[in-house]
Design a protein around this nucleic acid. Structure first.
Lengths: 154, 154
DNA sequence: CTAGAGGTGTGAGCGCACTCGAAGGCAAGC
DNA sequence: GCTTGCCTTCGAGTGCGCTCACACCTCTAG
């Protein structure tokens, strides 16, 4: 990668709000298969996680990452796609063990679509109730803020 | 408490979806001050947490709970109000140390309304971005579900 | 040729938020 | 009187999800 590109990327990463990091770049990479390949630092930066975390995910079998001649990780489109999914699910509260179960299903020989569907449906429900919970908390917080605003000495 | 009431309450607790547990009962208790007082098990059940957790919260100074003659905890309206707030904030991701800071401000002699406001505003922002994140994850999950539905063998 | 910035695998360490265990106190029912 | 059961305190243990330290390796620039 050229120094200019590095600088530009660093700037963009600094500007992008955390969590919404570089979805576009990921889309791009994920689109044209096996054209690109990122090293662990780049991938971690794009996904907004610690490089250690990526190595950890690989260690526990969540993802399989090809190597270059020097034995360094080269994240291809497939790996990044899976990691993007993993990070999204983690961020939204799915546990590591559930994710292991899920990727075991994905990597299994037999047809596991139904089981995966069940997991996804369950997670969808979890997400919905989480969102409802948070909206309740948000309402409570906003109410408290409003009362503080109204009566400076409640 | 009469056996009938206990049964009724157990039923209601069993029926109520977790998280939405007994908000009404809490409102009731919180309304008529110092009329009622719950023991640790009842309070924990109403708040949907482990009794150990309530003792832990007290130990680390998040809440102050009066005792009866036998030294047993009797949760009055003030304690329950605070715990309700604490549980809501914990559920929505505020850390224990932040909560300690907040209650320190509440319990301080000096006027700390501004600082508390700042914390609340920050938490509100956190909640909003959390909700946005979750909605993103939900959309991704629903998309995946939809693709599974369309092509049984993707 | 050498320094330095990155990479590697692996075991161990950390912080958080509970959660439990042990030893004992009190009050009601048989 | 004694069992039962819920309560008390306090220290210690647990599980999760990273996060780090270490010893070593590999490429690049000066």
């Amino acid at each position: 990668m050229e120094p200019d590109d590095t600088l530009r990327e660093a700037l963009r990463l600094a500007v992008d709000p955390p969590g919404g990091v570089s979805i576009e770049a990921l889309r791009e990479l994920a689109r044209d298969d096996d054209a690109t390949a990122w090293d662990v630092a780049t991938t971690a930066a794009h996904l907004g996680v610690n490089p250690h975390t990526l190595r950890y995910y690989e260690r526990i079998g969540l993802v399989c990452v090809p190597r270059d001649g020097a034995g360094h990780r080269r994240y291809d489109a497939a790996a990044v796609r899976r990691l993007l999914f993993l990070v999204r699910m983690r961020t939204s509260g799915m546990s590591i063990s559930d994710l292991r179960h899920y990727v075991d299903l994905v990597d299994a020989d037999r047809d596991t679509v139904n089981e995966r569907m069940d997991m996804l449906l369950e997670h969808r429900d979890t997400l919905r109730s989480q969102i409802a919970q948070l909206q309740l908390a948000l309402a409570a917080t906003e109410y408290k803020i409003a009362t503080y605003r109204e009566g400076p000495r409640p």
